[in-house]
Write a protein that binds this DNA or RNA. Sequence first.
DNA 1: TTATTTATTTATAATGATTACGATTTAGAA
DNA 2: TTCTAAATCGTAATCATTATAAATAAATAA
Lengths: 140, 140
Amino acid sequence: MKNANIQRMTDQRRVILDEIRDTKSHPTADDLYRVVRKRLPKISLGTVYRNLDILTNAGLINKLDFGSGQSRYDANLSEHYHLRCVECNRVVDVMDMPPIHYDRTVLSQTAFEIIGHNLEFVGICPDCRQKLSDTSDTSE
Amino acid sequence: MKNANIQRMTDQRRVILDEIRDTKSHPTADDLYRVVRKRLPKISLGTVYRNLDILTNAGLINKLDFGSGQSRYDANLSEHYHLRCVECNRVVDVMDMPPIHYDRTVLSQTAFEIIGHNLEFVGICPDCRQKLSDTSDTSE
DNA sequence: TTATTTATTTATAATGATTACGATTTAGAA
DNA sequence: TTCTAAATCGTAATCATTATAAATAAATAA
């Protein structure tokens, strides 16, 4: 099931993959829809969603689920973590983190078979920090 | 805004808080709706959502956002992580993890103001592992 | 204790993200 | 070139969550 190969490489699929690989912004399906439509004006939003799902299952991209509505997609397959702004939901990469080592015996208390982990940092990005300090000066 | 105190303690609010505190299962809003309705049959789903939001902002419970649709809620305020089954979405606690220490200099590459982090382990729970091995024996 | 004020509740409608559907098109094998 | 399953498009449906407006009730003061 997982890591199944792509069956057909359509223009739509190629362009979607192309555009995800071309950005570091961890776009949502809707972000990609807007970008891809510049090259394929007739593409439908459903096609974007379906292909993101197929590409994810094929292991060519990763789906990121944080809080706040939309899923995001990432073509960076190397081991890394993410840092999200709680104000504007911007997501940036955190590279070169020392691998967190969780003691397998600690986790075996659960009897789960461990597949992996997701680590997300949350914070406030420089832009939002600026905006917040601006408004707190003048009003309130 | 955050950590504001609760203004009025209604029956609905009290029962919802009561039920979250009474379980370790990290219930969704809908899970709680079903449980709370046994005690307050006329409660509306919107009330459950609104109160979960209020209790979260008041710091009395935590909202957990993993992938897969619904948010979950947790009255366990102590520092701990979660382990989620990718098959059935069950979530269990992982207590007593050594705190992960991320180098502030590493994160300062981003110029974000760091607030905190979320760590989620993913795996397959014993029940689902059983089911999966059962089906792969007979069919496919 | 009663009146008053305003947060809260209920029922329902609306929204936003995602998925499903059916008719049509097309990639890629034969 | 033909053929067929897979994919697309446009749209409708679904699911989780949020908003709305009239009715109710918690907490405060008279």
